[in-house]
Structure formats: structure tokens, C-alpha cells
Simulated assay, not measured.
Amino acid sequence: MRVSTSVIRALAVCTCFLGSVGASRALDPIADSGASPREMFSLGFNAYKRGEKQEAFQALSFAADKGHPGARWKLGQMYADGDGVPEDDYEAFRMFERIIRDQDDDSASSPNAAYISSALVALAEYVRKGIPGTPVVADAGQARALYNQAASYFGDARAQFELGRMLLAGEGGRPNPRQAAQWLKLASHKGYPKAEALLGYLIFDGKAISIRSEPVRGLAMLTRALRAASAEEQEWIRPLQEEVFALSNEEDRQTARMYSQVEGPLIDLP
């Protein structure tokens, strides 16, 4: 994989004040143990699963400092969520950025691909909004480029969904509704509920993406997406589904309910 030069340049600006993230003094016994980064990652991950988050943090920090992408990814998640450590989006950003820089030559079939893809998406979200009080400023164009990298090279469904939304709204560049629909279709086929919901919403009348209206299919996709979604995703999908449901007649509602039970893709865009 090669992250585009412009993206690397933008990340360099964001991280120009980063120092080395070395293991703390508390890790000296670990450093002296002779354990490999992979062994320390395994130790840290198992400690995390047991709920021993301080031990997990120490072991993961050692492995991350030695370049283990999984350890960096897990630490990034912990900082982002305030999980066992104080919540710190900038520290999370730093961890994810180091994954991208150090694993830049990894292929989409690499064992590290999932970490790289997830890191690209996390960086895109930070760059999209910015991190107040840090060098990471909002830059929708760079966010779009990062999503595109994860969506096209790694086939990441979340990146495909977010890229579709940005293309639809013209966020970070010129709008391209038809291309947006294609990205949403790819994410939908991977079982990403929010992508199926938004695509269903768009094809309900078809105008936004310049296709003929398919109200039954659109409602069916929204209904199925709502049923498959997590509680958090349902909060985003439900208003779209309820709007379309209210605009549908009873016959279309009944047919859509039947279609929503079908497995597999409900639409094939031209």
C-alpha cells in the first residue's frame, strides 16, 4: 500500500510536534525480560481481556514502541475511548498515524491489513473534524482522501459508507451522487446497515442519484437495515425509515415488508 503523498504531507503537519513514544520507567522489567513485541502484544491483549488494564497498557506500550501495529491500534482505541487511560484523541491520533507510516508497504492481503484499514478510517474521522487545541485541524479534503484509501485499497465498508456520504454532500470536494451510490452499494453488500439504509433512502424517489424511483425496494432496504442494525445505528436509521414509511401507501408497505426478509442484495445499480 502507498498512502498518497498529499496525505502523508498533511499528516506530517499534524504530527510535527510528536516526540518519541517510548516505554515508561515502569516498563523496565518488561524491557529486560527479552520478550518479543509479538509476545508483549499477546500478554497485553490477554491482560486487557481479563480487565487488568494497567498491566495491558504497560505491555501494549512496550510492544507499540517496538513497532507492533496491533499494539498501536489497541492503544489508539483505548485512548480514543478513555478505556483504562484518560481519554485523549490526540494520543489516539498519534498511535493510528504511526501505523500508517510504518506499515506503508503492507499489501491488502497482509496480516496487518485490518489494523491499517481501521487506522486510516480513524485518522479520516479525526482529520474530518479536527482535534481542538492540537495541530490536527479540520480538513475535509484530506479526510476524503484517507477514506478513499481505506475504501478502495482495503475494501473497508465503513470507509465506503463515509466516502459515499462525502461524495453525496460535496464535502471535501465536488459532489458526485452517482459515485456516492456505488460506494454505498459496495458497503451495503458487505452488510453495513447504515449504507443499505442510506441507499434505500436515495432510491425511494431516485432523484438525488438520477435513477427511476423504486419506493418499494427503498422501503424494504431501510426496513431490513433497521432490523440488522445495532442500537446506536438504529438511532441514525430510524428517522429515515419512518419518513419513507409515512410516504408509502399500505400496499407498498406490505410488499416492502416481504422483500425485507430476502437475503442478499436488493438492488443492482446501473
Rank of each mutant, 00 (worst) to 15 (best):
D83Q: 09
T134K: 05
S20A: 13
G82W: 08
V262W: 15
G67D: 00
A151F: 11
K74E: 05
R174G: 13
Y79S: 11
L43C: 01
L226W: 05
T223E: 04
R25H: 12
A197E: 02
A151N: 09
A145K: 11
A220L: 10
D28A: 04
V121P: 04
A256M: 14
R144D: 03
L266E: 15
A31N: 15
A23D: 09
P37I: 12
F57M: 00
V127P: 03
G34P: 10
G172Q: 01
Q149E: 09
L123F: 04
I131F: 03
F57N: 00
S6M: 08
S260F: 06
G218W: 07
G170K: 13
A108H: 10
Q103E: 14
A225G: 05
F41Q: 10
D156Q: 11
D139G: 01
E125S: 11
G76N: 10
H189C: 13
L202P: 00
G264P: 15
E242S: 04
A92Y: 12
G34D: 14
D104W: 01
M1I: 08
S61L: 09
E235M: 08
S4N: 03
L163D: 13
S248I: 06
A35S: 15
E214D: 10
E39V: 02
A92M: 14
S210P: 01
I211K: 05
G133Q: 10
K207A: 13
L167A: 02
A124N: 03
C16E: 14
A124K: 07
A143L: 12
N46F: 03
F45C: 03
E263W: 14
S110P: 03
A169I: 02
F45K: 11
L18F: 05
Y90C: 03
I131N: 03
R101M: 04
S61P: 06
M1S: 06
G44N: 02
H189I: 13
V127Q: 11
D28P: 06
L60C: 01
A59R: 05
M166T: 13
M78Q: 12
E235W: 04
L146T: 04
N249W: 06
S230A: 08
D139Y: 00
S188F: 15
T223L: 07
D89L: 09
Q241F: 10
S6P: 02
Q182G: 00
G170I: 13
R174A: 15
E91D: 07
Q103K: 04
E91V: 08
A80K: 12
A12K: 11
A181T: 05
I100L: 11
E233N: 07
G76I: 10
G170R: 10
A256R: 09
L27F: 09
F204L: 04
N112S: 11
R94W: 06
I267A: 09
P69M: 12
G133Y: 12
L222W: 03
P111L: 08
L18I: 07
P265A: 11
Q142F: 05
L120S: 05
A114R: 14
A119R: 02
G19Q: 13
R165D: 15
M1N: 06
R98P: 00
R253P: 01
I211A: 01
G200P: 06
I99K: 00
D28V: 12
E243F: 00
L186V: 11
D65A: 10
G34Y: 14
A92R: 11
T134M: 04
L219I: 04
R257Y: 15
A187H: 06
A195M: 06
A229D: 03
